[in-house]
């Protein structure tokens, strides 16, 4: 098992990372808005932290594509 792991090519890591971040972005929107917005000071769109997560994922996808 360990020997097989140690022979795995690096491009797998980059591919797994990109897929992982895309899945995270999709999963974020499975969380109902009301879970974290019910006591927000107002219901402005910018307060939707799922959009913050989406921005973070886009930045990470860019970073890992740049340094792959």
């Amino acid at each position: 098992m360990m020997e097989w792991l140690q022979s795995a090519p690096v491009w797998w890591a980059n591919a797994i990372t990109q897929v992982l971040f895309v899945l995270i972005a999709i999963a974020c929107f499975a969380v109902p808005r009301q879970v974290f917005m019910h006591d927000a000071p107002d219901q402005s769109r910018w307060r939707d932290v799922r959009l913050w997560a989406l921005a973070l994922v886009v930045v990470q996808l860019g970073i890992y594509a740049l340094f792959s």
Binding site: L5, Q6, S7, A8, P9, V10, A13, N14, T17, I63, Y64, F67, S68
Partner: peptide, 9 residues
């Protein structure tokens, strides 16, 4: 030094 992932070994 500019590769974010290093080889599996």
């Amino acid at each position: 030094h500019l590769h974010v992932y290093l080889p599996a070994d």
